[in-house]
Amino acid sequence: MNKNKIKLFLVDDDAVFLKLLQIEFMEQADFDIETFATGELCLKSLSHRPDVIILDYYLDGVDRDAINGIDTLDEINALLPDIPVIMLSAQDKIDVAINCMHHKATDYVVKSETAFLRLKKIITTILATQKLEKQLTWYMDRM
């Protein structure tokens, strides 16, 4: 894997949407992508250390007994709290977005025609912030 590539996990039970999202990100040369249809599969692969995770809210389309996106988010935060998780859902309800933020999601995006552009902007912001934090830490360590 190219060290400059951003390791991205895409987690969604909607196979068509997951594939479309994967294709959109693959067209960007700077992403190394792994896709998962359930939260359980994502959690089993956290040792691959993704830079960012895009996680569907419901996640019960493949397996009705699968853990939902919020429970998956909670597990990710318990295991690797520094990994930014962007929640993604068809739910255009403020209470759903607020719930995600209460569970420490980095951001919330509604599935729409502009979802990919929003996701890309959020990821760019996350990575820029992380880079600035590293530079600031480096600078503060030398003072």
Score class of each variant (00 low, 15 high):
N4I: 07
N4L: 11
K5G: 04
K5S: 07
L8V: 06
V11W: 02
V11L: 01
D12K: 06
D12N: 05
D14M: 10
F17D: 01
L18I: 07
L18P: 00
L21T: 02
Q22N: 11
E24P: 01
E24H: 10
F25R: 00
M26A: 15
M26P: 09
M26R: 15
M26H: 13
E27T: 08
A29I: 09
D30E: 14
F31W: 10
I33V: 04
I33T: 03
E34V: 10
T35M: 05
T35H: 04
A37T: 03
E40G: 08
E40I: 06
E40M: 08
L43D: 06
L43N: 09
K44T: 14
L46C: 07
S47R: 07
H48M: 10
P50W: 00
D51E: 11
D51F: 05
I53G: 02
I54L: 07
D56C: 02
D56M: 04
Y57C: 12
Y57M: 12
Y58C: 14
L59M: 08
D60C: 13
D60H: 14
G61I: 04
V62G: 06
D63C: 04
R64P: 15
A66V: 02
I67A: 03
I67T: 04
G69V: 03
I70M: 09
D71Q: 07
D71N: 07
D74T: 10
D74P: 09
I76F: 02
I76H: 00
N77Y: 09
A78H: 14
L79D: 05
L80F: 13
P81S: 03
I83Q: 01
P84L: 02
V85T: 02
V85P: 00
V85L: 04
I86N: 04
I86P: 00
M87R: 01
A90V: 12
A90K: 05
Q91K: 13
K93F: 09
K93E: 11
I94Q: 11
I94G: 08
D95L: 10
A97Q: 03
A97C: 06
A97S: 06
I98C: 08
N99F: 06
M101Y: 08
K104Y: 15
A105Q: 02
T106D: 07
D107Y: 08
D107G: 07
D107Q: 08
Y108T: 01
K111Y: 05
K111C: 06
S112T: 03
S112V: 04
E113T: 11
A115L: 09
A115K: 09
A115S: 14
A115G: 11
F116T: 02
F116C: 03
R118A: 12
L119H: 03
L119E: 04
L119K: 00
K120R: 13
K120Q: 15
K120S: 13
I122P: 00
I122K: 01
I122G: 01
I123F: 00
T125S: 10
T125R: 08
I126E: 06
I126N: 05
A128R: 14
A128Y: 15
Q130N: 12
L132F: 12
L132Y: 12
Q135P: 07
L136M: 12
T137D: 13
W138F: 15
Y139Q: 12
Y139T: 14
M143K: 15
